[in-house]
């Protein structure tokens, strides 16, 4: 038993980092769902494209294993450009594949999203190849800086950075939604898209904005994961998408806080499941928890229960 407890602090750190990443991906799902009521299956690919963009930026700013400018600046550039590109991809998907279907049955929208996902994944496979891209982060952080210990628990610089950036982005998003006029319009659109349109909200613009923000966060997650786990390939979107989506539902789809909570819970669940059970069953545990939560509280942990209108 002692074997288990001594791992615990480290597993909490592992779970928290992973959970932060899941949360960032989950927010994209949840925002789109909140407004359009659709599961944007292609969000995982948007995340993957964010990872690729981050890699390219780092790659272009590196010569002979040395970065060309200040490390903090490089990381910031990676994040910003990745967010921009991913946001753009999200907007294009909305404009070309989802907007024509806004009034179509749910299942069509879902299928169209699936089509976008398959298309993007194989587009990258065709033009970037199947090879895994490695982020050479050694030049970004000096050797002595990479890890530090608290007791027997190991923290790495990148993990800390990921957690910090994740929470920063979440805080910014919260302020945007709670305090600004655009945020108010977004909340109104989420409540009732038609009523918002009648009240003078430019619904199309809000939808575009939601796709932009959601996808940009997904792109940020892609780059952060690239920095953290040092790799990206064309296939990472599927698993990440599935996990982000699970996190969003766990927390209560449509709720941004739910997505944050769900992501962190999912990350912790996985690392704790590995601790106490054979690692092969960690996803089984995650999915069983998801099913249980949905059956007991179909609206998720944080989401609001909305009685059906008759």
């Amino acid at each position: 038993m002692e074997l288990y407890w001594q791992q615990l602090p480290q597993q909490l750190v592992n779970g928290l980092t992973l959970g932060g990443v899941y949360a960032l991906i989950a927010i994209g799902y949840t925002m789109v769902y909140g407004i359009l009521g659709m599961l944007n299956f292609a969000h995982g690919e948007v995340y993957m494209i964010g990872g690729f963009t981050g890699w390219w930026v780092l790659h272009l700013l590196t010569r002979n294993n040395e970065i060309l400018m200040n490390a903090a600046l490089v990381i910031a550039l990676m994040l910003i450009i990745a967010m921009g590109v991913s946001g753009l991809v999200g907007i294009m998907a909305e404009r070309l594949a989802y907007r024509p279907l806004r009034n179509a049955p749910r299942m069509n929208l879902l299928l169209s999203a699936l089509g976008v996902s398959i298309f993007l994944q194989n587009l990258i496979l065709t033009y970037q190849g199947a090879k895994v891209r490695t982020f050479h982060i050694a030049s970004l952080i000096p050797e002595s800086f990479r890890v530090f210990h608290i007791g027997s628990t190991v923290f790495s610089f990148m993990r800390t950075l990921v957690i910090a950036v994740t929470f920063l982005l979440m805080a910014l998003l919260t302020i945007l939604i709670k305090k600004t006029k655009v945020g108010k319009a977004m909340r109104a659109t989420a409540q009732d898209i038609e009523a918002a349109a009648f009240m003078g909200v430019d619904v199309d613009r809000i939808v575009v904005l939601v796709f932009l923000i959601g996808s940009a966060l997904g792109g940020a997650a892609g780059t952060l994961v690239g920095l953290l786990f040092t790799q990206v390939d064309y296939y990472v979107g599927f698993q990440a998408g599935l996990k982000g989506f699970t996190a969003a539902v766990l927390g209560g789809i449509g709720s941004i806080y739910g997505a944050m909570l769900g992501g962190i819970l999912l990350g912790l669940t996985e690392s704790l499941a590995v601790t106490f059970l054979p690692a092969a069953y960690k996803d089984v545990v995650a999915f069983v928890i998801l099913i249980t939560v949905l059956i007991v509280r179909p609206w998720g942990l944080v989401g609001e229960r909305i009685p059906e209108k008759v």
């Binding site: 069509n108 929208l109 299928l111 169209s112 089509g115 976008v116 996902s117 194989n122 587009l123 496979l125």
Partner: peptide, 17 residues
């Protein structure tokens, strides 16, 4: 190979629209 899957995705999008 990959072109096959790419066209699958496109067909799906166009058909739905």
């Amino acid at each position: 190979g990959a072109y096959r899957m790419m066209s699958y995705g496109l067909i799906l999008i166009v058909l739905m629209a």
